[in-house]
Design a protein around this nucleic acid. Structure first.
Lengths: 165, 165
DNA sequence: ACCTGAACACCGTTCAAGT
DNA sequence: ACCTGAACACCGTTCAAGT
């Protein structure tokens, strides 16, 4: 879709309307705002999250590797759509945001990881902290078009910080 | 100044012009773009960075505490102006950005910290990595208006990841 | 009922016209 | 030479008018 290629901010509602063969007014009868349209665009993609958690946790490897795999996938999924990472991360604490459902999915996924890895982790880590840390890295990677290995090296630092001392 | 209170995006060039008692055209004779005006606004504030490094490094405390103090100050300074953290962090790899000078200051400051703490740190850490990690946290904190202790707990995780295993 | 597309409010930026 | 402010291009969003 348009948003994936050019990014949320670079696609105007007129373009979307034209692409869909309708007037801009019709768009607004289906979606109250541009962000809620974007939320709908991200619908299917958000479902991949839990699959990624399953994969990472079923890895026959130490906690450090499982965690790194999950966070790498997480960051990659956030970066898949330009502009999504910053928006979703900003919405993490805001129940009124159009992305609220997506945020719950993410927080839930990170909670599952915390529950599974449990004793290997630093005591007291919260799903919200992980979500924000990785969301922040993803947003930076998105803004600066960072290569995968730059992202990996930053995530590696975070992973070490998340493991029990 | 206006930018500090309301944030970069919430202040229009017309407002700035009116506040300065000139027409918008005059503003553009002094600054080629809105971002370069913002860069000028941030001028004095950027000089605080090296002072903050000095203070942190002169602390009579273990490396962990010195690092945490510096990163906390760093993040606080980035969050001081709404919208600055994301912009400066995004500009870190872009020499053509209006914020390029500021980025050099930041990178230099983090390099000084790396040189000073040296053996206490994980081998191979780069100033760019620290700048982006903390810039990402600051941007998230800025977007979501996070309280200081939320920021502190995230920085603490990063600090642990930055220390030698 | 449903859709259209002109119109609105608001940007950053420019430039012909004034002094 | 320097400044002004109307004008331009482009947004997201609305709504009177058509079918």
């Amino acid at each position: 879709m348009l948003f994936r290629a050019k990014g949320f901010d670079a696609v105007s509602m007129d373009e979307v309307a034209k692409g869909a063969g309708v007037g801009p007014g019709t768009l607004y009868r289906h979606f109250t705002t541009k962000e809620s349209l974007y939320d709908a665009v991200l619908e299917a993609w958000a479902e991949k999250v839990n699959t990624a958690v399953d994969q990472a946790l079923s890895l026959d490897a130490p906690a450090r590797e499982q965690l790194l795999k999950w966070l790498t996938d997480f960051a990659a999924m956030l970066t898949e759509h330009k502009g999504a990472a910053a928006r979703i991360t900003a919405a993490l604490g805001d129940p009124g945001s159009p992305f609220a459902a997506k945020c719950q999915t993410y927080l839930g996924a990170n909670q599952r990881v915390i529950d599974a890895l449990d004793s290997a982790l630093r005591p007291g880590v919260e799903a919200m902290q992980i979500s924000r840390l990785v969301g922040g890295v993803a947003a930076v990677a998105d803004n600066s078009d960072l290569p995968a290995d730059s992202v990996a090296s930053m995530l590696s630092i975070i992973v070490d910080g998340l493991l029990a001392a």
